[in-house]
Write a protein that binds this DNA or RNA. Structure first.
Lengths: 354, 354
DNA sequence: CGAATCAATCGAATCGATTCGACAAACGGG
DNA sequence: CCCGTTTGTCGAATCGATTCGATTGATTCG
């Protein structure tokens, strides 16, 4: 309830002096500073965010746009939300959580009412309407995950390298025939980066190693998924490794493997790609964890950096390398591509090999 | 970039008139209203949140305090965050997401800088320091989940009824010997409501039905959990049903069941209590879903209702029923206790029974 | 026909900070 | 000893809305 005026009165100075003590933007004598700080302590003063924002045009808030929830909820998203929030706090920013239950309406509203300084978008889709809206409003933003079209800063795991690594490590353990449980068809159709790049990684590693890698597309319906998997597991020649990128239905999946009479890892090695660290009790399987913390830190940073350099619509700087302006070509946007690492137990050899 | 002045100028009226058109708090003639609305459209005007808040002392923001993340992340929390956000939006509120990486510091900061009008706390613990801070600051709040001590509005699934229902339904399906995989010991020690009430429900239903219900406390270490479960599954007389309240390590748990040579549901029926709707592919098991949407709607409502009646420290109203002031006794706080419902397939009978 | 009533709108104060120019006192140099 | 500089602080304008009285016509009633 105390305001800057109360503090000033108590310390016997002008309000502006209190402000300078707080911001440190002008030199204040030792004595005055102590008097002001004492008054602040005694009154339990804390500046009102709204007044600060009104004057300075800075909210110190990031809008975090959670992904649409298409039937199946993604366990991963909450974790990202928390880690992004922590990362933002590290830079003095708070996080406003937004769903897209009203489509892009929420983002537009938050941007125009100046509730936030920048946005972080989760689970960006190809030709994502949110990206267009932000661009239209000239609102700074950064993306968690990416596809190759959006001309905004982004961070992501290198999914191609990740799946390729899983395949190569399986081959190194002696496996020659394996299944790759890829993203569901609707994710491929939506041209999600992780779906496309994951497939690329599997194909590339198969070609490089000469291994027999059969792709099984996942499906959001667990029964269909179970049927597909069961067919692939029993088709000859019998696969000895299962690389899983689509983890949403993991329990059901392991159930299916067990139902086929296969023990893990004795008959079949299961390798996860993009698992959430420590999540869902997957620690007993060899895997490539999704670097949630690293991605969150990076995206918060990218979003905050974008605030200063908000779109100024000026003529493109002549310092630029030849071609279009800095943020026009997707490949020019700042980004942070993270390299995969294996975690967990080593990959078991195929049956019949020591 | 347009302000209320610009709109006023364009419509040929005073700024206050524009404000009244927007708020509807005074009568405005048809003609003027249309002129103002046209000007708003043409300029793409949207009121600045900070200016509004500064004047009206209302942020229209709820602070959502995410639970501490103790090693294992809870898949459930992200879902709650999203649903609470949607529910808040339904009342015209936005949601500021807070972690407790700096303990209660975040809440205190948000409350004192007036970034939010009220708080929603997730996963409240016994003698939760956050509750004390909010009380000390006189900050309105509501809780997701509850224990019997906090004198704040709350909502929760009736965990005692839920576990009791799972036991009774299992008995009705013919089971006489079952395991109850309860919350982990550290959760009981923290006196979490769901842990205590769940145990009560199991005991009560066991007494009522005369069934043999053995309690197996979960454990955050999956290896310890697996060992405990394995012992209980193989102890004589052999249990025919497994009721699971602690779902965090579910995949590993089903793995353990399979490793014991037990097929679900043929040898052993697994019933889940408090599973997340559609989450993790648990739809093939009989279960009691956690009513996330219902709880979220309720808690948003409770928090918003608490804003109006913010602590006024005045003398207790004489309209009150005899006894202490309205918010002094925990049992007096408004709340919303949700009754459990079975979902999914019917519970399979024990082996040897048709 | 003048006074009272009512509807619609205006003007100005206000919320609580930030920030710029002005100003007084202290200081140093010539 | 006077003037220019530096140091520290003050005062006032400002950010963009809300809201309360005051004001202006139009209308009604006696």
């Amino acid at each position: 309830m105390a305001t800057i005026k109360d503090v000033a009165a108590r310390a016997g100075v002008a309000p502006s002096t209190v402000s300078y003590v707080l911001s440190g933007s002008r030199k204040i004598s030792e004595d005055t500073r102590h008097a002001v700080q004492a008054a602040i302590e005694e009154l339990g003063y804390h500046p009102r965010a709204s007044a600060r924002t009104l004057r300075s045009a800075r909210t110190r808030v990031l809008a975090l746009a959670a992904p649409r929830v298409p039937g199946a909820y993604r366990a991963i998203d909450g974790r990202f939300a928390i880690d992004v929030t922590d990362a933002a706090r590290g830079h003095g920013y708070d996080v406003l959580l937004m769903t897209d239950s009203d489509g892009v309406g929420g983002l537009r509203r938050v941007a125009r009412s100046r509730l936030a300084d920048a946005a972080v978008l989760m689970a960006v889709e190809d030709r994502d309407p949110r990206v267009e809206v932000l661009h239209e409003l000239g609102f700074p933003a950064a993306l968690l995950g990416h596809d190759d079209h959006a001309a905004l800063p982004w961070t992501d795991l290198d999914w191609e390298a990740a799946v390729a690594l899983a395949v190569r490590e399986s081959v190194a353990a002696g496996h020659r025939r394996m299944l790759f449980l890829s993203s569901a068809e609707h994710e491929v159709a939506a041209r999600r980066g992780y779906a496309l790049h994951g497939l690329d990684g599997a194909r590339r590693a198969a070609a490089e190693t000469g291994a027999d890698v059969r792709v099984v597309p996942s499906h959001r319906d667990p029964d269909i998924l179970a049927r597909r998997l069961n067919e692939a597991l029993t088709a000859r020649p019998v696969p000895t490794a299962l690389i899983v990128q689509h983890l949403i239905l993991l329990p059901r999946l392991l159930d299916t493997v067990a139902a086929a009479g296969l023990r893990v890892p004795h008959h079949l090695t299961v390798v996860l790609v993009g698992s959430l660290p420590d999540e869902l009790g997957t620690r007993h399987l060899p895997r490539i964890d999704l670097p949630v913390a690293e991605m969150s830190t990076a995206v918060a940073r990218l979003a905050i950096d974008a605030i200063g350099s908000g779109r100024d619509d000026g003529p493109p700087s002549s310092q630029e390398p030849a071609g279009a302006g800095a943020s026009t070509r997707p490949s020019d946007a700042p980004h942070h591509l993270i390299q995969p690492q294996m975690a967990g137990p080593v990959i078991a050899p195929p049956p019949g090999r020591p």
